[in-house]
Nucleic acid binder design. Sequence first.
DNA 1: ACATTTTATTCGTATATTATTATATTATGA
DNA 2: TCATAATATAATAATATACGAATAAAATGT
Lengths: 91, 91
Amino acid sequence: MQAIEKLADFLRTLGNPTRLMIVKELTAGQKCVGEVENILKISQANASQHLHILKSNDIVDCIRQGTTRCYFLKDPELIQNLLKLIEQKLP
Amino acid sequence: MQAIEKLADFLRTLGNPTRLMIVKELTAGQKCVGEVENILKISQANASQHLHILKSNDIVDCIRQGTTRCYFLKDPELIQNLLKLIEQKLP
DNA sequence: ACATTTTATTCGTATATTATTATATTATGA
DNA sequence: TCATAATATAATAATATACGAATAAAATGT
């Protein structure tokens, strides 16, 4: 795939309020699906769906821990620098 | 509007291949609609529409120059730093 | 093996996004 | 004023996305 497409995919994936909130939560450390569900007050299916999209786009990964699945940022520094950069400017 | 929504809007606006290419072109300097149209080989209407979306989201602005309209990045540094940051990481 | 807990998937529906086509607007020059 | 060039807008159709409801799958403990 073209580099520009990959870049656009990355940005579009983050360009959703729910996914952005998930990612922000994950900057504080890994969370399982149920935690994301409770913190953001979204349905279990929706949490799982968004996490799947984030995983498909290589933004998060997960490990099984017993019956739960812990999701975490694949590149926390990238995400944090990105958010810092934009948040400084936007408001 | 919530900060998170603004942030998501910003990212979603950039998260489209055509708009991303437009923005990349604009990092090299301002361009009028016809130039964008020719460089990216997209229709005039499409170029104008994408530029409108970029303008609505405060990513570009424009000035009239006779019968043409020159579009330019409102914050070139932000865009350049953003692209640099991501492109370094994204393989 | 069964029940429970946690997560994933499927499906339907509503909404959003995108590109195309056609038309309108705006400024300029003859 | 009229014609032209450049850009904007509107309407449409195709596709994508988001969410909820229901169901399935996977692992654990009894």
